[in-house]
């Protein structure tokens, strides 16, 4: 569960927005892992693409912080930047694909097969089925599910991040969970989605 953005983050963000480099560095250090995970989910767990996206997010964050007023949590502000950066990125890829009609510029790479308990666990049938099913969702839906289930964010914060009403978040999540459950089944694992 992600810790909620507290007044310390808001203060740091406001200071960073006024050009305080040290505040910006502290903010990045404290939020990088969470932002990186969202970028990874948005990038379909493609490490190279996630890194590219995260680099873009870092720049956008720095350039966007002077506009941050502290009226929403820093997390909402930062996750929103991730979402917008990914949307722009996918639009760019779609444009390039239309222009060149070539193959997909990037394909998701398999998870690094380095040994270790976590990797072994991830290679389990269920984890792989979940991963494949997630890749069949739209990036924004993947991000919504990741933030809700992987990071444990609540409906109100998700509503702020995605710019939709809390009720819509709830119904969209319900639909997504059902769809993900069906996709996991299609991918060969009998996961039980929440009914």
């Amino acid at each position: 569960m992600a810790p909620p953005s507290d007044t310390g983050d808001v203060d740091l963000a406001l200071r960073a927005g006024r050009g305080d480099h040290e505040a910006f560095e502290r903010l990045v250090a404290s939020w990088w892992d969470r932002l990186g995970r969202v970028c990874a989910a948005l990038a379909g767990y493609d490490g190279a693409l996630a890194e590219e996206l995260a680099g873009d997010v870092l720049v956008r964050l720095y350039l966007g912080l002077p506009r941050y007023r502290g009226d929403a949590s820093f997390g909402s502000f930062a996750y929103r930047i991730c979402r917008n950066a990914a949307a722009d990125h996918w639009r760019k890829i779609a444009r390039e694909r239309r222009r060149f009609s070539g193959p997909r510029p990037r394909q998701s790479e398999p998870i690094d097969p380095a040994p270790g308990p976590e990797e072994t666990w991830l290679r389990e049938e269920e984890a792989q089925a979940i991963r494949r099913a997630m890749l069949r969702l739209r990036p924004q839906d993947r991000a919504l599910l990741h933030l809700a289930e992987g990071e444990g964010l609540g409906g109100v914060e998700l509503a702020r991040i995605f710019g939709i009403a809390p009720g819509t978040v709830k119904s969209r999540l319900h639909r997504l969970r059902k769809r993900l459950g069906a996709l996991i089944k299609e991918e060969g694992h009998d996961a039980c989605p929440r009914r």
């Binding site: 493609d46 490490g47 996630a50 995260a54 976590e118 984890a127 929440r194």
Partner: peptide, 30 residues
């Protein structure tokens, strides 16, 4: 969330977290 997640959802949440963790970029050289 307004409801308590069931077991499969909790496990799925963990899988999603770990999948993202594995593909997440390293901390940037500021």
């Amino acid at each position: 969330m307004t409801h308590a997640p069931d077991d499969s959802q909790t496990r799925r949440g963990r899988v999603l977290g770990v999948l993202a963790e594995r593909a997440a970029p390293a901390r940037p050289d500021l």
